[in-house]
Design a protein around this nucleic acid. Structure first.
Lengths: 509, 324
DNA sequence: TGGTAATACACACATT
DNA sequence: AAGGCC
DNA sequence: GAATGTGTGTCTTGCCT
C-alpha cells in the first residue's frame, strides 16, 4: 500500500473536519439589490395582472404606432423602425378611434362639423340627456385610454430599464460586484484563507463558504435578476480552480511515472490524469484548473537529500524512475521527507499527459498570497468573460485586425470627408494609397463616381470605367505611372453598384 | 543529430487554391512521423544567440524538428509521410503532411508587453482561434523571472495571461526560460509521437470546423481528422475574399464616431452602397436625407444613431461636388 | 402636451 | 397633486 | 479587453402653470 494518503481520502478528512457553513457577505451592492428587487417585482406584477399574449400584441402594436409618430416628427421614413409598417400616422389612427366612438353614441351627422344652422340650434337648446350621457361616456373613455397608455408607457420604460441593467451588470466595472465566489471550507482552514476572503471582499464581490463537490475548490456564480421573474438567481460558471496539496500532487506524479515504467497493465494508483478524468466524468460541464502551492519546498527537500539523483533526472540522460525507495528519514515528523521521490522532468511529463488527455492545466505558485492573487485575477476574468464574448459575437473582425486606423475625424462642415472617401477606397484588398489617390482625383466624391456610372451606356463601360486612370508613383523625373487596371475597376464597380450584399468582390477563377 | 531541413512554403506566391483536392486520403499507422515544426523567426534574427539557444537545446534532446515559415503560431507538429526514394529519381517524392491540432504561440514577457500595447496581442489570439487548429497553446516565458521593468505593471501582464486562459480558453504553459521551453517542446513531441504511434490519420478540410471549446472535448482528445499542412499554412495568410457587405461596413467605419455596432445597424437597413444611395434618391427633401439614418437603433439595445452621424454620412454620400 | 435646460450617461477615441 | 393650457 | 483617462454626442429628468 502507498504510504501516502490518497487524495480522495484526504478530501473526506478535510470535509468532515470543516464546518460546512454557508455564508454570503455582501460588500457594496447590498443597497442596490434591495432597491432593485421591488422594481422587478412591480414589473412582474403588472405582467401577471394583465394578460400575456393579448397584452403583448397590444403593446407591440402601440409601440409601432408611437414610433411612427416620432419618426414622422423627425421626418424619417417609418421603415427604419419597422420595415413592414405602413405610412399611417398616429393622429389619423386616433381620430378614427374617436370618430367611431362618437358614431356609436350620437347621430352620425353630428360627428364632426355641425352645419351652421344646426349649430345655432344646438347652441340654443341645452344638451339632451342622451348627449349628456354621451359626453360622460366620452370622458370616461378618454380617461381609460390615457390610463392604459400610461400603464403601457410605464411598462415599456420598466422593460427598457431592466434590459439596460442587465447590460450594465456585464460591464467590466460593475460585473464584478454581481459575482459570488464560492470557496470550499477546506481552503479556508489552511493558511491564508482569511486573506483570500479579505481580498475578494476588497475587490467588491460576494463570498460564500460551502462545501464543494470538489475538494479545496473555488467556483463562481453570477448573481443577477432573472429577466422573466425578476427574482435574483445565481448563474453558475463552469470554471473551477482546485488547490492540490503537494503531498497528493507528488504522489500522483509518482503514480504516473510508475505506470509509464512498469507498463499499462500494472495498476499503480491514482495519477493526476486519472484523478481529473474521474472528476470530469462525474460532471462533464466543468472547466477545471489546478493550483499547487510551494512545490519548491518539496524539491528543496529532495535536493538536499540526494543531489546526485536530482541532477541526473534534470539532465534526463538516464531513465531515472524515482520510486519511493529512498525514504529513510524520520517519518511522522516531516511529511515531505516520506514522500516519493520525483524529478522535475517527471512532473513535466505527467503535466503533458494531463494536458493532452484532459486539457487541464496546473499553476504552480510559491506563496498563499500568490494563490489569493490568482483567485482574484481569475475572478475578474470570469466576471468579464460574458461581456467580452458578446462583443466578439456582434462586432466585426476587422475592428482590431492589427493595422486598423481609427475613424477619420470630420467636423460639422464636412472637412475631412475627402480623406474618409480615400480611406473607403482603400478598404478593398490590394489598394495602395497611390491607387486610392488616383481614383480620388478623378472622382473626389462617391456621388460623382455614382453619376459617372449612371452615365455609362453599357455595363461593359461601367466595369472598365476606372481601368485607365493613371497612378503616379514617386516624384519628378523618377516617377512612374501605371494604370489602375481592369481588376480593381471591376471591384469598385461591384462595390458601388451591386445590390447583392454578399456579392464576392474578388472574382472567382 | 537533429534533422534540419529548410522546406520553405513560400508564403505569398502560392496559387489560389493550394493543391489539395477533395480526395480524402489517409495515412496508415507507421507510414508517417510526428515532427515538430519551428517557425523560422524563432531561430533567426534579432537577439543573435538567444534564438539559437532553443535550437541547440532541442538538438541536445534529440528532437527531430523542422524549421519553416509559419504564417501563424511559433510551433506546431505535422504528421509527415515517410517517403522511400524511387529508383531513377534523385529527389524522393514529396510526402503528404497533416498538421496536428496543437499550435503554440511562444511569448516572452517583454513581447507580451509590447503586444498588449500596440494591439497585436488581441489580434494574435484571434488568429489562433480561427487558424483551424483546435488546441492553441500559449507558452509564456520568463514568468517569475527578474522583475523586468517593462512599460506595463506586472499585475496587468498576469491578468492578461489569466484572461487568455479563462476567457479565450487557451492552454497556458508557463516556463522560466528558453531551456524550459525546449524541455516542454521536447516532452510534447515525444508524447505526441507516442500518442500517434498507432493511428490512422485522415485529411480534413478547413471547412466545417465548429471550433467550440478546446478542452471541452476531453474524451476525443485524439483527433485523427487533420488538415494538410499546405492548406493550413496558406489559409493562415489573410487574403480572404471580400463581399460588398463587408467592405461597405469597413467603409462606414472610416468616419469617426462609427463603430462596429453602428455600422452593423446601418447595414441592417442598407446592406449595400447601392441601396443606401437609392434611399437617398428617394427622399423628397434634403432634410429628409440628412435624418435618413438618425433614428436607426444600434448596439446593446435600441440606442439612436443620432442626427449628427446621420448628417455626416449624408454629406459623404450626397455631396454632388468634390469633398473637402 | 411639448419643449426645453441640465444633468447623467455611453461611447468613440486618445495616453502612462 | 391634479388639471387644463396651446 | 491592460488599465485608465479624456472628450463627442445621446438620454434621462425635472420644470413650466
Amino acid at each position: 500500500m502507498a504510504p501516502v494518503a490518497d487524495p480522495v481520502s484526504s478530501l473526506e478528512v478535510h470535509a468532515s473536519a470543516g464546518a460546512a457553513r454557508s455564508d454570503v457577505l455582501m460588500v457594496s451592492s447590498d443597497s442596490e439589490e434591495e432597491a432593485m428587487i421591488p422594481l422587478a417585482v412591480r414589473l412582474k406584477q403588472k405582467q401577471l395582472g394583465l394578460g400575456t399574449a393579448a397584452i403583448n400584441a397590444e403593446e407591440t402594436r402601440a409601440s409601432n404606432v408611437v414610433s411612427n409618430g416620432c419618426s414622422r416628427l423627425l421626418e424619417v421614413p417609418s421603415y427604419h423602425i419597422n420595415p413592414e409598417a405602413q405610412p399611417i400616422e398616429r393622429n389619423k389612427i386616433c381620430s378614427n378611434i374617436t370618430r367611431q366612438c362618437s358614431s356609436n353614441n350620437n347621430a352620425p351627422y353630428l360627428s364632426k362639423e355641425p352645419p351652421p344652422e344646426n349649430g345655432t340650434y344646438l347652441a340654443k337648446c341645452k344638451k339632451t340627456p342622451a348627449e349628456v350621457e354621451a359626453a360622460r361616456q366620452e370622458t370616461l373613455r378618454k380617461r381609460a385610454m390615457r390610463e392604459h397608455q400610461q400603464e403601457e408607457k410605464e411598462r415599456l420604460r420598466m422593460e427598457k430599464k431592466a434590459l439596460a441593467d442587465a447590460v450594465k451588470a456585464l460591464r467590466p466595472e460593475e460585473c464584478i460586484k454581481h459575482m459570488v465566489v464560492t470557496v470550499d471550507p477546506g481552503l479556508l482552514q489552511l493558511e491564508g484563507g482569511g486573506a483570500l476572503l479579505t481580498s475578494l471582499h476588497a475587490m467588491g464581490c460576494s463570498c460564500a463558504i460551502e462545501k464543494q463537490s470538489l475538494p479545496r475548490s473555488v467556483t463562481w456564480a453570477r448573481h443577477s435578476p432573472c429577466p422573466q421573474t425578476g427574482e435574483m438567481m445565481s448563474i453558475p460558471d463552469s470554471n473551477t480552480v482546485i488547490q492540490v496539496p503537494v503531498d497528493d500532487f507528488v504522489t500522483m506524479i509518482n503514480n504516473y511515472s510508475k505506470r509509464q515504467c512498469n507498463g499499462v497493465l500494472m495498476e499503480s494508483g491514482i495519477s493526476l490524469t486519472t484523478w481529473i478524468q474521474g472528476h470530469m466524468s462525474r460532471n462533464p460541464s466543468r472547466t477545471l484548473s489546478l493550483v499547487v502551492i510551494d512545490i519548491d519546498k518539496y524539491f528543496r527537500s529532495q535536493n538536499s537529500k540526494c543531489q546526485k539523483k536530482y541532477r541526473e533526472a534534470v539532465l534526463g540522460e538516464e531513465k531515472n524512475v524515482g520510486l519511493q525507495g529512498a525514504q529513510k528519514k524520520r517519518r511522522k515528523k516531516d511529511d515531505i521527507n516520506q514522500l516519493p521521490e520525483v524529478s522535475r522532468v517527471q512532473v513535466e511529463e505527467a503535466l503533458v499527459d494531463l494536458q493532452l488527455q484532459t486539457g487541464v492545466q496546473v499553476r504552480f505558485l510559491s506563496t498563499w498570497k500568490d494563490f489569493t492573487d490568482y483567485i482574484t485575477m481569475s475572478t475578474k476574468a470570469v466576471a468579464e468573460a460574458p461581456f467580452k464574448r458578446e462583443r466578439e459575437k456582434t462586432g466585426f473582425t476587422f475592428c482590431l485586425e492589427s493595422e486598423w486606423a481609427g475613424g477619420q475625424k470630420v467636423d460639422r462642415t464636412g472637412n475631412g470627408l475627402l480623406q474618409v472617401w480615400k480611406r473607403q477606397i482603400q478598404q478593398l484588398n490590394r489598394v495602395s494609397p497611390d491607387m486610392a489617390s488616383a481614383i480620388l482625383s478623378a472622382y473626389p466624391s462617391p456621388r460623382l463616381l455614382a453619376q459617372a456610372y449612371a452615365r455609362c451606356k453599357s455595363d461593359h463601360e461601367k466595369v472598365g470605367l476606372l481601368a485607365d486612370i493613371l497612378i503616379r508613383r514617386g516624384e519628378g523625373v523618377a516617377s512612374t505611372t501605371r494604370r489602375v487596371g481592369p481588376e480593381l475597376s471591376k471591384r469598385l464597380f461591384l462595390l458601388m453598384m451591386s445590390c447583392d450584399a454578399h456579392q464576392p468582390l474578388d472574382s472567382a477563377v | 543529430r537533429a534533422h534540419i531541413s529548410e522546406s520553405d512554403a513560400t508564403g505569398k506566391s502560392q496559387t489560389l487554391e493550394s493543391g489539395r483536392t477533395a480526395t480524402s486520403w489517409h495515412l496508415p499507422p507507421g507510414s508517417y512521423d510526428i515532427v515538430l515544426c519551428v517557425d523560422v523567426i524563432e531561430t533567426t534574427g534579432g537577439s543573435s544567440g538567444r534564438k539559437q539557444e532553443l535550437v541547440k537545446e532541442l538538438q541536445r534532446n534529440c528532437v527531430t524538428f523542422d524549421i519553416r515559415k509559419l504564417n501563424v503560431g511559433d510551433f506546431l507538429w505535422v504528421a509527415r509521410e515517410k517517403v522511400t526514394p524511387v529508383p531513377g529519381q534523385l529527389r524522393p517524392p514529396v510526402g503528404k503532411e497533416l498538421v496536428l491540432d496543437y499550435i503554440i504561440e511562444r511569448k516572452r514577457m517583454d513581447d507580451l508587453c509590447g503586444s498588449i500595447i500596440d494591439g497585436r496581442f488581441r489580434e494574435q489570439k484571434f488568429r489562433l482561434k480561427r487558424c483551424g487548429l483546435r488546441k492553441p497553446i500559449y507558452l509564456v516565458e520568463e514568468c517569475g523571472s527578474a522583475a523586468a521593468h517593462l512599460s506595463l505593471p506586472e499585475s496587468t501582464l498576469q491578468q492578461a495571461i489569466v484572461n487568455t486562459q479563462v476567457v479565450d480558453g487557451f492552454f497556458v504553459k508557463r516556463v522560466q526560460d528558453v531551456k524550459e521551453s525546449a524541455a516542454y517542446l521536447t516532452i510534447m513531441t515525444r508524447y505526441l509521437q507516442k500518442l500517434y504511434h498507432n493511428c490512422t490519420l485522415f485529411c480534413r478540410s478547413r471547412e466545417l470546423e465548429g471550433d467550440g471549446g478546446d478542452e471541452s472535448e476531453q474524451t476525443a482528445n485524439l483527433s485523427c481528422s487533420l488538415m494538410a499542412f499546405t492548406e493550413f499554412n496558406y489559409g493562415a495568410i489573410k487574403n480572404k475574399c471580400q463581399t460588398v457587405r463587408e467592405v461597405f461596413a469597413r467603409q462606414l467605419m472610416q468616419i469617426s464616431g462609427v463603430s462596429g455596432d453602428k455600422a452593423a445597424a446601418v447595414l441592417e437597413h442598407y446592406s449595400t452602397v447601392s441601396s443606401l444611395l437609392q434611399a437617398y434618391d428617394q427622399c423628397s427633401s434634403e432634410s429628409e436625407k440628412e435624418k435618413l439614418l438618425s433614428s436607426i437603433k444600434y448596439g446593446k439595445l435600441k440606442r439612436n444613431l443620432g442626427p449628427a452621424l446621420s448628417r455626416t454620412i449624408y454629406q459623404l454620400y450626397c455631396t454632388r461636388g468634390p469633398l473637402s
